[in-house]
Amino acid sequence: MVNQCMACHGEGLKGGLGPDLHGVVEKLKPEGVAAVLKNGRGGMPAIGASWTDQQTSSMIEYLKALK
């Protein structure tokens, strides 16, 4: 899953074509991140549209842990 993110958000998800994802959970809250993953937003596709709730939760936990 993270490899899909790196395509736009760059190595370490520090930004690239897409924005830096460090702090995104604090900014959007878990439910906001889940909504973006499931529905897309702006130029971001809905990459999590077919993910289970567990996969979405796992991605949010991963994003929370970014340093």
Rank of each mutant, 00 (worst) to 15 (best):
P19V: 10
P19K: 08
P19Y: 00
P19H: 00
P19S: 01
D20F: 06
L21H: 01
L21W: 02
L21V: 10
L21D: 03
H22E: 05
G23S: 04
G23A: 02
V24W: 06
V24Q: 12
V24A: 14
V25S: 05
V25L: 14
V25W: 07
E26D: 14
E26A: 12
E26W: 01
K27E: 12
K27D: 07
L28V: 06
L28Q: 09
P30I: 12
P30K: 05
P30N: 02
E31C: 04
E31D: 15
E31S: 10
G32K: 06
V33C: 08
A34M: 10
A34D: 09
A35E: 12
A35G: 01
V36M: 11
V36C: 03
V36A: 05
V36P: 08
L37T: 02
L37F: 07
L37H: 00
K38I: 15
K38S: 04
N39R: 14
G40F: 09
R41Q: 10
R41H: 10
G42W: 07
G43R: 07
G43E: 08
G43V: 09
G43M: 12
M44L: 15
M44T: 11
P45W: 00
P45F: 03
A46Q: 10
A46Y: 08
A46I: 15
A46T: 11
I47G: 02
I47Q: 03
I47K: 02
G48A: 06
G48Q: 06
G48D: 05
G48C: 09
A49F: 04
A49E: 12
A49M: 14
S50I: 12
S50N: 13
S50Y: 01
W51T: 07
T52C: 06
T52D: 03
D53L: 09
D53S: 11
D53Q: 13
D53I: 12
Q54H: 00
Q54S: 10
Q54Y: 01
Q54I: 14
Q54V: 15
Q55F: 03
Q55M: 11
Q55C: 05
T56N: 02
T56K: 04
S57Q: 15
S57W: 00
S57G: 15
S57E: 15
S58K: 10
M59K: 02
I60V: 15
E61H: 03
E61F: 00
E61L: 13
E61D: 13
Y62Q: 11
Y62L: 15
Y62R: 09
L63E: 08
L63M: 13
K64T: 12
K64C: 04
A65C: 08
A65M: 15
A65N: 15
L66R: 01
L66K: 02
L66Q: 04
